[in-house]
Amino acid sequence: MNKVEIFDPAMCCSTGVCGPSVDPELTRVASAVYSLEKKGFNITRYQLTNDPDKFAKNKEIHRILMEKGPDALPVVLVNDQVVKVGSYPANEEFAEWFEVKAEELNEKPKSGLSINLNQL
């Protein structure tokens, strides 16, 4: 089974739904990652803001950042090999890496919060 790691730039969240405008690319990637995680695949995202140690400890990521700076992010590794620099994978690429259909990667995370207003 393939292992995919995504090294995100510094940002407040990985979903793209923070701030005044929604980034549809981040939302698409978050949905694909969520769907793959739910299916049990080995996919992980690291944010420069929250996981700086992962960036420093990975020799390839560290090298890319030293050569190109933070504008090179995101960087995507498949089985510890750099496959993308500066952009996120298309759903078709995720599908190929994990041998699923691209249409399976559109599931949105659901909130587990339930509020009954009649009991307030």
Rank of each mutant, 00 (worst) to 15 (best):
N2R: 15
K3E: 02
I6Y: 00
F7M: 04
F7L: 01
D8H: 11
D8Q: 12
P9M: 04
M11I: 03
C13Y: 07
S14C: 13
T15L: 07
T15N: 12
G16C: 14
G16R: 07
V17P: 12
G19R: 12
G19P: 00
P20S: 03
S21L: 03
S21M: 04
V22S: 07
V22W: 02
D23E: 06
P24E: 00
P24R: 00
E25F: 04
T27N: 06
T27Y: 02
R28C: 08
R28A: 10
R28V: 04
R28N: 14
V29Q: 08
A30G: 01
A32Y: 07
A32S: 14
V33L: 10
V33W: 06
Y34N: 06
Y34R: 06
L36M: 11
L36H: 12
L36Y: 05
E37P: 10
E37Q: 15
E37W: 02
K39S: 03
G40F: 01
F41C: 03
F41Y: 13
F41D: 02
I43K: 10
I43E: 03
I43C: 08
T44W: 00
T44M: 04
R45D: 00
L48H: 04
L48G: 08
T49F: 10
T49L: 15
N50E: 06
N50F: 11
N50T: 12
D51F: 14
D53Q: 12
D53K: 15
K54I: 02
F55Q: 08
F55D: 04
A56F: 14
K57V: 12
K57F: 12
N58Y: 00
E60W: 02
I61Y: 02
H62D: 09
H62A: 07
H62K: 12
R63A: 05
I64V: 13
M66K: 14
E67I: 13
E67R: 15
K68W: 04
D71V: 15
D71Y: 13
V75S: 05
V78T: 06
D80W: 09
D80G: 10
D80Y: 10
D80A: 05
V82T: 05
V83Y: 06
K84L: 15
V85N: 11
V85C: 12
G86N: 14
G86Y: 13
G86W: 07
G86P: 14
G86Q: 08
Y88N: 11
Y88A: 10
Y88K: 13
N91S: 01
E92Q: 15
E92S: 15
F94V: 08
F94H: 09
A95Q: 10
A95R: 10
A95Y: 13
W97R: 05
F98K: 01
K101S: 13
K101N: 13
A102S: 13
A102T: 08
E103D: 09
N106V: 07
E107P: 12
E107C: 05
E107W: 11
K108D: 02
K108I: 07
P109K: 01
P109L: 06
K110A: 09
S111Y: 00
S111P: 03
G112H: 05
G112F: 09
L113W: 06
L117P: 07
L117W: 14
N118P: 12
L120K: 06
